[in-house]
Amino acid sequence: MAASLSGLRATSLQVKNLDLYEACEYAYKKGLENGLNPDYRMLEADVVVHGEFLKAALWVNFDQAFMNANFTLEKDGTVIFSKFIDKARLGSEFFLEMYKKIEVKNDTIIIKGHRDVEYLPLKILIDTNT
């Protein structure tokens, strides 16, 4: 939701529709006041690691000034592994689009993305204790 709202805000400025922009801002602020959780999974995949079926997800978590990319592995709806990946200032559209795919090879998670991001592909070795 936050990404589409951010895109709508950007579009409203492009088309010079200030009423729409103000409505987006109002809706976002009211949502936060009412407990809206703007965090969302920007990528997810069903994976097999060490013979176990897991849900891998790359989240965007929002705070006051930044968007954070966090990787999680879930088993039966419970997070069993979490890793901070990166952060960017709020409104950075590229950050929301730079991650492309989650894969597994030899019990290593591989997060693929835009070729201009120097740390991608990112490899995360999952040990058997996870």
Rank of each mutant, 00 (worst) to 15 (best):
L20Q: 03
A69C: 09
V15M: 04
A69M: 07
A10L: 06
P38V: 00
V47C: 06
F94H: 07
L20P: 00
F71W: 11
E22S: 01
W59K: 02
H50K: 05
F62V: 07
F81Q: 03
K105L: 09
M67D: 06
G91E: 09
L32S: 03
E74R: 09
K123T: 13
D46P: 01
T130E: 12
I126F: 10
K55R: 14
F66G: 04
V117S: 10
K87R: 12
D39E: 06
Y99L: 09
C24Q: 02
K101G: 08
S92T: 07
S92G: 05
E97Q: 06
L58W: 07
A69L: 07
D63F: 01
L122M: 15
L32H: 02
N34C: 09
E52C: 02
T11A: 07
I80G: 10
N37P: 01
A27T: 06
L122K: 15
P38S: 02
S12K: 01
R89E: 14
I85H: 13
F95P: 04
A10N: 03
V79D: 14
A45P: 01
T128I: 15
F95D: 09
A45M: 04
K83T: 10
A2C: 02
S12R: 00
H114F: 14
V60L: 08
K100D: 08
E118Q: 15
C24S: 05
K105A: 04
A56T: 09
A45C: 07
Y21L: 01
I109L: 07
A88M: 04
A57G: 12
K101P: 06
K87Y: 13
E52T: 04
G35P: 00
I124F: 11
R9L: 12
I110V: 13
G7P: 00
I126H: 08
T128P: 11
R89N: 09
L120I: 11
L18S: 03
H114L: 12
D46G: 10
F94D: 10
L125M: 13
K123I: 03
D116V: 09
N37R: 01
I85R: 07
E52G: 06
G35H: 00
N129S: 15
L120Y: 04
S6I: 05
E33P: 00
F71T: 08
G113R: 04
R89L: 13
K105D: 12
A23H: 02
Y119L: 11
I110Y: 07
A3Q: 06
K30I: 08
A10M: 02
Y40H: 08
E103N: 05
R89V: 12
I111S: 06
L96F: 08
E103Q: 10
L58P: 06
E33Y: 00
M98H: 03
A65N: 12
V117C: 13
G7H: 01
T78F: 14
V49L: 14
K16N: 08
A88D: 07
A69E: 08
I102E: 05
A3Y: 05
N61C: 11
Y119R: 13
G31R: 00
F81Y: 15
C24V: 03
M1I: 04
L36I: 01
K112L: 14
I124T: 09
A23P: 04
L36Y: 05
A2K: 02
R41V: 05
L125K: 15
F84M: 12
L54T: 03
D63S: 08
Y28E: 10
E74G: 01
R115T: 13
H114S: 15
I85Y: 13
A3S: 05
E74M: 14
F81M: 08
N61E: 14
